[in-house]
Design a protein around this nucleic acid. Sequence first.
RNA 1: GCGCCUGUAGCUCAGCUGGACAGAGCAUGGGAUUUCUAAUCCCAGGGUCGCAGGUUCGAGCCCUGCCAGGCGCGCCA
Length: 587
Amino acid sequence: MNLANSFLTTPQADMQTIQDLLSEQVRAAFAAAFPGADLAGLPLAATPAGDEAFGDYQSNGAMAAAKVLRQPPRQVAEQVVRHLPTGDLLAKVEIAGPGFINMTLADDALARHVAAMQDDPHVGLPQSGAGRRLILDYSAPNVAKPMHIAHIRSTVIGDALKRIYRALGYEVLGDNHLGDWGTQFGILIMGYRHFLDKAALAASPVDELQRVYVLSHQRCEENPAWQDQARAELVKLQAGDPENRALWQTFIDLSLEEFNRIYARLGVSFELIRGESYYNDALPGVVQKLQDLGLVRESEGALVAFLDDEKLPPCIVRKSDGGYNYATTDLATVFSREQEFQPAAILYVTDERQQLHFRQFFAIARKAGVTTPLRHIWFGLMRLPEGLLSTRKGTAIKLDLLLDEAEKRALELVRQASPDMPEAQQQAVARAVGIGAVKYADLSQNPQSAVSFTWEKALAMDGNSAPYLQYAYARIASVLDKHAERFPGHDWCAAPLVLDSPHARRLALRLARYSGAVCAAAAQEKPSLLADALYDLSQAYSSFYQNVPFLKAEAGLRESRVRLCALTAKVLRHGLGLLGIETPDRI
RNA sequence: GCGCCUGUAGCUCAGCUGGACAGAGCAUGGGAUUUCUAAUCCCAGGGUCGCAGGUUCGAGCCCUGCCAGGCGCGCCA
């Protein structure tokens, strides 16, 4: 467990993951074998076995404890195993190599555990976040800039984390902290007044805003008078000039309209949309507070927080022209959120370039009395094989274009696979599959790795991809329908689960590991851990599907296997739901 | 100059915070469909984990130094 995530580690009422149950037993066995020894902090817990040949779960704790106990690790393991009862939960416990404790679950215990997930509304997930609120700050596009493919990272990772934390019982407020204030608006107003093409604005508002902004920005660099005028327009805007204010509102409305269209396509939503401008009126008070606390002093005309104790560079909170910047807005935002919502933590999902900013901002916030845990969840930059995405160089690919292409390719596949499906349904399925593919391509990767964007990867629809998982789900849905049709009255809901083949057992084990994967994804802030587990599960299912007959099996066994299919479908649907990916019943 | 990040199969990436012979997908080669959706399954080849030291019973993971790339470092966000 990541210690930085202390807000995630409160004791919970329902310890129901099988891994936790085993870990408890292992810890108890260590305590019984070595009473009085201080084994706190040692990694005694059960982890999924590295190789299925070694069993289902393993503990490497004996090797770790050997040093503390000054005994050979194998001997430690032997004493622990003596206190690790086989029977109810465990069928077999073995010691291997230098002191690995390998555990194999009893088939019926595994079957019982998995069966219990069927009626659990939380599909076996501990509700460790119940009664606690999180604020998740993600997406946050800039007004008057079209969303391009790099924006998908914050949006999709943030949305998945929101769903994951919710599944663990947290109340999560997603807040879209729009870039809707700042120096760019003076430039934009000048561009709008001088270069606007009304037809283009009507056809594609945000593109046109961006175009006039770029032109005006160029003019600023060439012409000081232009730059002065842009500054003057900004000052007017900030002073509340009605005309500029109206223009600014127009920019926001047009941008939000487009952003909302993309969010709708992605299935992403927010509980709060509070851009930087929302905190405008609070900025002078924030600076005053920092001054009162003696956290800032004047330097070269600006007001600066010096963070030498934290070994961080200085941070400007008020510019020499009296204007405020990002750090000030973020401080105002955190004060406001803390006071209004009393969250258990605030999480910020942004790219890696903002690490320094967040460390500075967090340091100042702490000094100013903010006690809420603040976490910066950063992700790697997205780049093209030929270099960074650049709006100016025209290498930025618009997000809409990517989604269009994904849906188009998915539609080809659906038409091929289901030629008899009604056109409207084909379209709907293609939407779910195409968007799912794009989201999964991002979510299945470690967020902190830099992403090198290729169409091939972003649109992958075989192998480790969302369509592979969706396909597995659709095959199950089809099986369930066929079963109901061909064997009316043969209810599988309460059929005993018989794990009579390696394929079935492997599948059940993957189902049992689901809750652990969700918890790990939450604790490490990495939806990719969940995606991995779901892919594992689908692979186990595909193998099961290919190798074990169910509709053709004899009655009884048939219902047992169909029930296992249904459980797999339930977990796949739930898990993909946590990634924000839909699961059509037919593909 | 300082700081953060990255370097693993031909390509794209995992690697559960130090454990068992380094794993997937794509690509390549071979096989499976009168049968529950072949977007699938089964099998094979493919690696000096950037380089060199060190710590450890054990290092892709920790420490040090190099090499290569990316990002950032007081009035942008």
